[in-house]
Amino acid sequence: MIHRRRVNTNLIAGCIITGLTVFIILVGYFWTPFDPAGMDASAINAAPGLPHLLGTDRFGRDTLSRIMQGAGATLRIAFFAVCIGAFAGTLIGGLTGYFGGILDELIMRLSDAVTAFPSVLLALVAVSIVGRGSDKLILVLGVLFIPSFARVVRGEFVKQQHRDYVKNARLMGVKDARIIFVHILPNISAVLLSSIAIGFNNAVLAEASMSFLGLGVAPTESASLGIMLKEAENSLMSAPWQALSAGFSIAILILGFSLISEGLGFNGIRSRTSKRRLRLNAENA
């Protein structure tokens, strides 16, 4: 067998892009060039230049500062929504996949039903019930993400469950919980990680579209990329930099995560885990 070190360009590029954006966002929490909410009547719809690097909006607010803050809000929502979805989804998918039976059928049919609706539509309904605000948006998106994670994890569990090492563990008398979390979970981590990265993408997009439709973050709460897009809509012709910079930020965020999930999913990273997996696959092939 040939051990060639393949450089995983996708993963590296994804990590660099995501790392940079996260860094900028973190900086945005402590320092922005201007107050993101501070209006300046002397610089309304100012074009990019000095001192406003990305220009200003129709209230004279600095676009760069608002993006730094808004991307933070978007990322925060995406992060917690994915946390809820991935945690609950893994738990549900793991248990149903492992134990099977009627509960498994029931939950999977339920998730079929949920998946059948466009998720934004469901989110609209849910938000109109629970109300606006970033915390509520996190909750709604998180719950909506559960089925997709549950499905992926369940599939993997069903697959792993028939592997001999799981049978062997069961024969040894390993408790079910230990089999699920200590034996099977690490073995599906690659799949789980890449679906988490994809989940991030969906969450960022969902936040943006919900806020764009006026159902996400309240404009009084903080900036968010979706809100900025919405606000930029009116001055699209006269001051295109507002829409462009918000849209571009969304694209960059998503690009970073996509590259990471691509890198995790297909090539395996240069960490021990994936190298092992890679060799394993090569040997099995």
Partner: peptide, 25 residues
Amino acid sequence: ELRALQGRDIGMIFQEPMTSLDPLM
């Protein structure tokens, strides 16, 4: 009861040694 009995007193070896060990342990 089974758990205690089987794990201790019965062992099983499978056909495919590749898959009968946990690859990440």
